[in-house]
Write a protein that binds this DNA or RNA. Structure first.
Length: 564
RNA sequence: CGGGGCGUGGCUCAGUCCGGUUAGAGCGCACGGUUCGGGACCGUGAGGUCGGCGGUUCAAAUCCGCCCGCCCCGACCA
């Protein structure tokens, strides 16, 4: 493509609305343009990258027997009512105003409605169907460029099996395909065990790219490879020891002591002797008191998984009427009408201090076994940086990450809700067993840029670069430069290279170099007057900055040999 | 939804506190000229409902009210 006649709108200034590298560079390099919050147009350069990534996805999905289909984004409201997900999604789903229709945020319902009519016999399965399409979600807060948009492109795949073993196989195939896809795209990624959340189902893993811009938090072990979302991650941290000395409860006057840190100072005891009480509401009706060790952080996803239903922190003005005290003086002893649960670390612990449910008072010598009417112990605490890996004991790192893919063993929920049954070998009716597997296409691109850029711009690899080669004709008003660079351009495209040719005659050399670095094609070829006098051009590898002068007649050979 | 910031030419911003000629700069754009290997220079020029509506005032980009939009933190995130 010739630059002079193409739509490659690069910009020098950092756009005011972008704060993370991928967002800034996607705007500056002209990949995308915003239309509204969380809604982007893909401009020619960006669209070329999208197509390359989609092609890789197609190849790997087809390789595991996936069949691509194209599904409606506009769905009847009724279909979503059948699975109850109109309420589950709530405000996240876009509703059409003048028809009982919704914009699909995902496609389990549509797939299932097709499957129920055509997969009637065990002989019809297994099947893997996938689509690469736009999904719509009314995100309350779109952010970070294309990382969280209201409209985005997703590869969604669905497996239909007749047995749980079959589901395991389909799931494993997808896991393998995903590893290939992300590796081919050039991403450094890791896989974590994840919470399956409201999707339900028996198993789920996320494919993650480490990045400060990521919205997920993961604990990773750089020694053994253990990695998990903090929503499920565990560490090898010992439970509190139980002391043989187990005196009676005592009231402790603690005026104006609200926080654990203040209590540590006031009583001069280690934080591990303190039990922090947090209060929540389950399904808006059941008060819950959660006991944590000292300053351990409660992970609310773990809490939700442990209890089920909707969980929210109690409003400050709900607390006093229910407990008799304000937050900071709450505790498990003698508390009525609350369901009380505790983190595993507190198992059978004693000698604890916690709130007295009376402002400015705490209670000492609490023995959980003796003094607390407990409903159970659960893993509730969030893993902290530096704690020991459960697998190998090495220190864990806690990092931010971008979720680029998620695979689920769905099971039979959707098949049962939508009555997608088949006849098995014995002639019995049985629900189809499903899996669902998603990849965020824009997120691959943004993640790639987060991992592969420098202060000058993007650094593409050969595989997903919009073009392989960026050819720069320096002074296009010079006849020799014009003719030679045109010839090189023709030579390259005749030999199958995708080339962007900066043939502009109205900008200076500096502009062309800056644009080339910003756009970030893996190999640059520079045709300038000095080198051309000797029949040479210069090559520059964008990633390493490595330059060499090459005779024009050797250029094809040189490109073959270059590592770019 | 809670908290914060912002909205002035295509882009980045100044001007707003303290109302007062014709609303500015740099970049970009158009034309002419010089340059031609790291966002080059000179000259000329076009381009603005100062986010919108209402109010105060002799006078509003500037003060007041309401609304809209965008970004950030939090909540939320199959």
């Amino acid at each position: 493509m010739k630059f002079s006649s193409s739509f490659f709108p690069t910009q020098k200034e950092v756009p005011v609305d972008a704060t993370i590298p991928s967002h800034i560079l996607m705007l500056r390099a002209g990949l995308i343009r915003p239309l509204a919050a969380g809604i982007y147009s893909h401009l020619p350069i960006g669209q070329r990258v999208m197509l390359k990534v989609m092609q890789i996805i197609r190849e790997e999905m087809n390789a595991i027997g996936g069949q691509e289909l194209f599904l409606p984004a506009l769905n009847p409201l009724e279909l979503w009512q059948e699975t109850g997900r109109v309420d589950d999604f709530g405000d996240i789903m876009f509703h059409v105003k003048n028809r009982p229709m919704v914009l699909a945020p995902t496609h389990e319902e549509v797939i299932c409605s097709i499957a129920k009519n055509f997969l009637r016999s065990y002989r019809d399965m297994p099947q893997i169907w996938y689509q690469i399409q736009t999904k719509f979600r009314n995100e309350p807060r779109p952010r970070s460029g294309v990382l969280r948009g209201r409209q985005f492109v997703m590869k969604d795949a669905y497996s239909m099996d007749t047995s749980w073993e079959g589901l395991d196989e389909s799931y494993d195939k997808h896991a393998e395909a995903y590893k290939k896809i992300f590796a081919r795209c050039g991403l450094k990624f890791f896989i974590v065990g994840a919470s399956s959340g409201a999707m339900g189902g028996s198993g789920s893993q996320e494919f993650m790219v480490e990045s400060p811009s990521g919205e997920d938090t993961c604990a990773v072990c750089s020694n053994c490879g253990y990695a998990a979302n903090v929503e499920v991650a565990e560490s090898n941290i010992p439970p509190l020891p139980r002391s043989d000395n187990n005196p009676e409860l005592e009231d402790i006057h603690t005026p104006n002591v609200r926080t654990i840190d203040e209590l540590v100072e006031f009583l001069n005891v280690p934080a591990e002797k303190l039990a922090k009480s947090l209060v929540y509401m389950q399904n808006n009706e059941t008060p819950i008191l959660v006991l944590m060790v000292g300053n351990d952080v409660l992970n609310e996803t773990k809490l939700a998984s442990a209890l089920g239903g909707n969980i929210r922190p109690m409003h400050p003005d709900e607390i006093e009427p229910l407990t008799g005290a304000h937050s900071g003086s709450l505790g498990p002893v003698g508390l009525k009408n609350f369901k009380i649960i505790a983190d595993n670390r507190l198992k059978d612990a004693n000698g604890l201090v916690s709130g007295a449910n009376k402002d400015d008072y705490h209670i000492g010598n609490i023995d959980i076994k003796r003094d607390v009417n407990l409903d159970g112990y659960y893993d509730l605490r969030e893993v902290k940086e530096g704690e020991a890996c459960v697998e190998c004991g090495n220190q864990l790192r806690v990092v931010n990450a971008i979720e680029i893919g998620h695979i689920f063993k769905l099971g039979t929920k959707y098949a049962e809700d939508l009555k997608a049954y088949f006849l098995n070998e014995k002639g019995d009716e049985q629900p189809i067993i499903m899996g669902s597997y998603g990849i965020g296409v824009e997120r691959i691109i943004a993640s790639y840029i987060e991992q592969n850029h420098d202060e000058n711009g993007i650094i593409w690899n050969k595989t997903i670069a919009p073009f392989h080669i960026h050819l720069i004709g320096l002074n296009m008003k010079n006849e020799m430069v014009r003719e030679a660079s045109e010839n090189v351009y023709q030579l390259l495209i005749d030999n199958g290279y995708e080339v962007i040719f900066d043939d502009r005659d109205d900008v200076s050399a500096g502009v062309k170099f800056k644009d080339a670095d910003l756009l970030g094609m893996p190999l640059h070829i520079i045709a300038g007057e000095k080198n051309l006098r000797d029949g040479n051009v210069e090559t520059k590898v964008r990633g390493t900055g490595e330059r060499s002068v090459v005779a024009i007649e050797d250029i094809l050979n040189k490109i073959e040999k270059l590592d770019y």
